[in-house]
Amino acid sequence: MTTDIVLNIAYVDKSFSGLHALKDVNLQVEKGKTHAIIGPNGAGKSTLLNVCIGRLAPDRGTVTFNGEVITGKSAHEINQAGVVRVFQTPEIFHDLTVLENVMIPALATRDGSFKLNPFVRMDAETDILREAEQALEEMNLLEKKHMHAATMSRGDKRRLELAMGLVQHPQLFLLDEPTAGMSRADTNATIASLQHIKERGMTKVIIEHDMQVVFSLADKISVLAQGQIIAEGTPDEIRGDPRVQEAYLGGTHHE
């Protein structure tokens, strides 16, 4: 394996009650690239991410991050190693302000634990405040930093969670449906923000049904169908692959 491979998924199988969710999945993510995983509902995309972050143990196979096998490590250990995932349903603190939401993971990353009270002299944490505001600016949310998160639109809540991930300085950023439920205007704004992050060279894996998002951001695309990788290539190669058109892009499944 070359040093340019950040994430290496090798021969991964996962079954639930005898049903194969993943079958012999092999996938490599290169440093600084945006790698999209697409496929119809039930293809195994979220299961694959859960295996990568330690929420699920594979029945067979290994996941390697930066040359180290992380299979068998806890989700907390994998996160501390630099793998950050943003989930399909926003996981934010609705009773706190937008800024406070981003300061909490920034403090946790610095301290290495959520056990410490993040509200102790939070207003005095100027370095954390600066990092949180920078992450919000990258997601075009800085002007809303004093809003309570509960009052935000769904699109803004999604971008808030992206900011909460960014402030942890991930070495590998896993995005599960980052534009799910967004209006087209919100989706376009999120694409622009993610393109800006891409220019910084951050390594990302994106699960997404919106092909505008995928083709705007991805350097490489892997296509999952019934738990197996059926095609892999550049956006142009995937557009023209008849297997992909049949299984996803041009089939009966529409998102």
Results as ranks from 00 to 15, higher is better:
A218F: 06
K198D: 09
N188C: 09
M152Q: 04
T151Q: 13
D156N: 11
D186W: 02
S153A: 13
I238V: 12
H196E: 14
R184M: 14
Q226C: 00
D186M: 07
H148G: 10
R154V: 09
T234C: 03
V213G: 03
I230A: 08
R154A: 09
D241C: 01
T190H: 13
H196C: 14
S193Y: 13
V223M: 13
V244Y: 00
T187Y: 02
T234Q: 03
I238F: 04
E208L: 10
M147V: 07
N188D: 14
L174M: 07
S216R: 08
T203D: 04
H169G: 13
E208V: 11
A150I: 13
L162D: 04
A150F: 11
P178S: 03
G233A: 11
I221Y: 07
K204H: 05
P235H: 05
G181N: 05
T187K: 12
E161H: 03
M152P: 03
H209T: 01
G165P: 01
A150L: 07
I230R: 02
A150C: 13
V223R: 12
R159S: 04
G233L: 05
T179R: 05
E161L: 00
L224I: 14
V205W: 07
K157L: 03
G233Q: 12
G165Q: 04
V205I: 13
I238Y: 01
T190C: 14
M164W: 05
E208I: 12
Q212F: 05
N188S: 10
K145Q: 10
L194R: 01
G227A: 09
T190M: 11
K198W: 12
V214A: 01
Q195L: 15
V205G: 13
I207G: 08
E199Y: 08
D186P: 01
P235R: 08
T190D: 08
H148W: 11
L224T: 06
L160K: 02
A192C: 09
K220Q: 15
D186G: 06
E237I: 03
Q168H: 06
M202S: 07
R200V: 06
H169N: 15
R184Y: 09
R159W: 03
D236P: 06
R184L: 10
A225I: 11
K204D: 00
S216H: 13
G233N: 05
L172M: 12
L194W: 14
M152R: 00
Q228W: 10
L166P: 07
K204W: 10
A225S: 15
I221L: 03
H209R: 02
Q226T: 04
M202Q: 09
